[in-house]
Simulated assay, not measured.
Amino acid sequence: MQKVRKLVTTIMIAALITAMEGTTILPLSHHVKADTNTVLQTSQAENDLTKYKKINGIGDNTVLGADFSHYQLQKNEWKKVWKNYKGIEVSNVFEYVRSQGINTISVKVAVNPTKDKEGNESYLSLENAKKTLKEAKKAGLKTNVTLLYSDDITYAGVQKLPDGWDTDSAEEKALEYTKNVIKELKAADAVPTMITIGNEVNYNFLTLSNWDGYCAMAEISKIVKDAGIKAAFSFAAPGKASDIQYIIEQLGYACEKYEGAGYDYIGVNIYPDTHNENYVKTLKNTVEEKAAGKQ
């Protein structure tokens, strides 16, 4: 098993995601003169930014990401326009977020996402993901694809199998599906920097039991890493932050033929309205202590 290159606790803050991909911003004419209100608002925004200090010690291996799963839908169907904090239109949102410190663009992909009534691709489709990944890569950003292994978004208690899959065949189908996704991404010149296996898994990957689920993750991770792509796992936040130790230990034992599950990143989805500062500190310390340097 390859050495873990970097272990991170991924903080998924709903407010950040909304700000990056969900806020409706109406276009304004370039010929309209700014009124007193606009000038005051811009000045206030600039003053507000001075309250925040730059965070030091963040290396190149740290994932500073934003979820752009809705991007194609917003751009093509909702005709959204993105603007910076001064109200100035951003011509290329990918180049802009990169200039603001974001280094990774993520997209979620479902197995059989349902199209809308007009037959448009779901925001979770692989086709939409390919387009977004290519735009992000062109802007010099790293990219991440989260494979849901479901037909819809998955959460801690909701890991529903795709249509046509059952628990007995889930692992075999998941392996074949992963191979096909990577093949399609390569053909489209949209190979991501990283593939995240599952989303908010809670001891129930592919609806399997703990051991079988972790073993399936290990099998999939091998396919991803053999393709030259970094592998990540996404877990739901455990009730007690220190319980992440159990997950790390299980991954270390998963699938004896692989001497554990090989991965580059381990992510834990936490939310500010549920997990306090002490929870985050304990989680971070446990991951660094129990996972760093594992073979």
Rank of each mutant, 00 (worst) to 15 (best):
Gln2Thr: 15
Lys6Asn: 15
Val8Glu: 10
Leu16Ser: 10
Ile17Tyr: 15
Thr18Trp: 12
Ser29His: 03
Ala34Gly: 08
Asp35Glu: 06
Asp35Pro: 03
Thr36Ser: 13
Gln41Ala: 13
Gln41Met: 12
Gln41Gly: 09
Gln41Trp: 15
Thr42Met: 08
Asn47Pro: 06
Ile55Phe: 13
Asn56Arg: 12
Phe68Gln: 02
His70Arg: 12
Asn76Tyr: 08
Lys83Ser: 14
Asn84Leu: 04
Tyr85Gln: 00
Tyr85Ala: 02
Glu89Cys: 02
Val90Trp: 09
Glu95Pro: 02
Glu95Asp: 03
Ser106His: 06
Lys108Gly: 07
Val109His: 01
Lys117Ala: 14
Glu118Arg: 15
Glu121Cys: 08
Ser122Ile: 02
Ser122Cys: 04
Leu124Tyr: 01
Leu126Glu: 07
Ala129Asp: 10
Lys131Gly: 07
Lys131Asp: 10
Ala139Gln: 03
Leu141Val: 05
Lys142Tyr: 09
Lys142Asn: 08
Thr143Leu: 07
Thr146Asp: 07
Leu148Ala: 09
Ser150Gly: 08
Ile153Val: 11
Ile153Glu: 09
Gln159Tyr: 08
Lys160Pro: 09
Leu161Gly: 03
Leu161Lys: 05
Gly164Asn: 02
Asp166Asn: 13
Glu171Phe: 05
Glu172Asp: 15
Thr178Trp: 02
Thr178Arg: 04
Lys183Arg: 11
Leu185Trp: 04
Lys186Glu: 08
Val191Lys: 15
Gly198Asn: 04
Asn204Ile: 07
Asn204Ala: 05
Phe205Ser: 11
Leu208His: 06
Leu208Pro: 06
Asp212Pro: 13
Tyr214Met: 12
Met217Asp: 07
Glu219Phe: 14
Lys222Ile: 06
Gly228Pro: 01
Ile229Cys: 07
Lys230Trp: 12
Ser234Asn: 14
Ser234Leu: 01
Ser234Glu: 10
Phe235Gly: 05
Ala237Ile: 02
Ile244Arg: 04
Ile247Asn: 10
Leu251Trp: 14
Cys255Ser: 15
Lys257Gly: 04
Lys257Met: 10
Asp264Thr: 02
Tyr265Val: 05
Ile266Ala: 02
Ile266Met: 11
Tyr271Ala: 11
Pro272Cys: 10
Asp273Ile: 03
Asp273Ala: 06
Asn278Asp: 10
Thr282Arg: 00
Leu283Phe: 00
Glu288Tyr: 03
